[in-house]
Amino acid sequence: MTNLYFVRHAHSTYSADELNRPLSERGREDARKVTDILKNESINVLISSPYKRAIQTIQGLTGIYDVDIVIEEDFKERLLSDKHLSDFDSAIAKVWEDYSFAWEGGESNIVAQNRGVRALEKVLERYVGKNIAIGTHGNIMVLIMNDLDKRFNFTFWKQLNMPDIYKLSFDNQRLIEVNRIWEKS
């Protein structure tokens, strides 16, 4: 069995700089909880989106498991648009309603999902039988999960916590089960 622990990043301090947006104080506290939850999961590999908030959310595991974080560009968050969208809620609902629709300069669900699934397949091929923690983002995580099982949809995405952890267990490339292992206190 190969186990992937998708870790949606903790709360961050908002800035327009997506790449370098850091965790907030609450986010840093929750990142410590992520470390606490995953410290007994025998993690072999740490992978993260290049975004600082995703890296910081799993960074505490580097000392416990004595492994470095491998950056995987394709686990970065989906780009909704390269323009300011005044109503985020309706903008995100629109792309989930029509998987081929993309806002100006942004990724459609299909494009983002294909990117994420390619990254997932690469991880499953490279790390067979390993336990892998992946620091990522809510939308791309759910799009990847949706490719595997349609119950992971927009409604599912809306109920995610920040952070959140889902363990996906695979037999080779076949998904066996999904378990949520984050309990927000």
Results as ranks from 00 to 15, higher is better:
Met1Glu: 03
Met1Leu: 06
Asn3Cys: 04
Asn3Thr: 11
Leu4Trp: 07
Leu4Tyr: 02
Phe6Trp: 13
His9Asp: 09
His9Phe: 02
Thr13Asp: 07
Thr13Ile: 07
Ser15Val: 07
Ala16His: 14
Ala16Asn: 10
Leu19Met: 13
Asn20Arg: 13
Asn20Lys: 00
Pro22Asn: 02
Pro22Leu: 05
Leu23Phe: 11
Leu23Ser: 05
Ser24Gln: 02
Ser24Pro: 02
Gly27Trp: 12
Gly27Lys: 04
Ala31Pro: 05
Thr35His: 04
Thr35Ile: 00
Asp36Ser: 13
Asp36Asn: 15
Asn40Tyr: 14
Glu41Cys: 08
Ser42Pro: 00
Asn44Asp: 14
Leu46Asn: 08
Ile47Gln: 01
Ser48Asn: 07
Ser48Leu: 09
Ser49Arg: 14
Pro50Asp: 15
Tyr51Phe: 13
Arg53Trp: 01
Gln56Lys: 12
Gln56Ala: 14
Thr57Val: 11
Gln59Asn: 11
Gly60Val: 02
Thr62Lys: 10
Thr62Val: 02
Gly63Val: 14
Gly63His: 09
Ile64Arg: 12
Tyr65Val: 12
Val67Tyr: 02
Val67Phe: 02
Asp68Lys: 09
Asp68Asn: 11
Ile71Tyr: 03
Glu72Tyr: 11
Glu73Met: 02
Phe75Cys: 06
Phe75Ser: 10
Glu77Tyr: 03
Arg78Thr: 05
Leu79Thr: 15
Leu79Ile: 15
Ser81His: 04
Asp82Arg: 15
Asp82Ile: 07
Leu85Ser: 13
Phe88Thr: 08
Phe88Met: 13
Phe88Leu: 10
Asp89Thr: 10
Ile92Pro: 10
Ala93Ser: 07
Val95Ala: 14
Val95His: 06
Trp96Ala: 04
Trp96Met: 03
Glu97Ile: 10
Glu97His: 15
Glu97Val: 09
Asp98Ser: 13
Phe101Gln: 13
Gly105Lys: 07
Gly106Ser: 12
Glu107Asp: 09
Glu107Asn: 12
Asn109Cys: 12
Ile110Met: 00
Ala112Glu: 05
Val117Gln: 01
Arg118Cys: 14
Ala119His: 00
Glu121Thr: 12
Val123Ile: 13
Leu124Gly: 03
Glu125Cys: 00
Arg126Val: 01
Arg126His: 08
Arg126Thr: 13
Tyr127Gln: 01
Val128Lys: 15
Val128Asp: 07
Lys130Cys: 15
Lys130Trp: 12
Ile134Thr: 08
Ile134Phe: 00
Gly135Lys: 06
Gly135Ile: 10
Asn139Met: 12
Ile140Arg: 01
Ile140Met: 09
Ile144Trp: 11
Lys150Phe: 01
Lys150Tyr: 06
Phe152Gln: 08
Phe152Cys: 02
Thr155Pro: 11
Phe156Ile: 04
Leu160Asn: 01
Asn161Ala: 05
Asn161Met: 08
Pro163Ala: 01
Pro163Gly: 06
Asp164Phe: 03
Asp164Met: 08
Ile165Thr: 05
Ile165Gln: 10
Leu168Tyr: 07
Ser169Lys: 12
Phe170Lys: 08
Asp171Tyr: 08
Asn172Ala: 13
Gln173Asp: 06
Arg174Ala: 06
Leu175Gln: 05
Glu177Gly: 04
Glu177Val: 11
Val178Arg: 00
Ile181Asp: 12
Trp182Ala: 01
Glu183Arg: 03
Glu183Val: 03
Lys184Pro: 01
Ser185Ile: 11
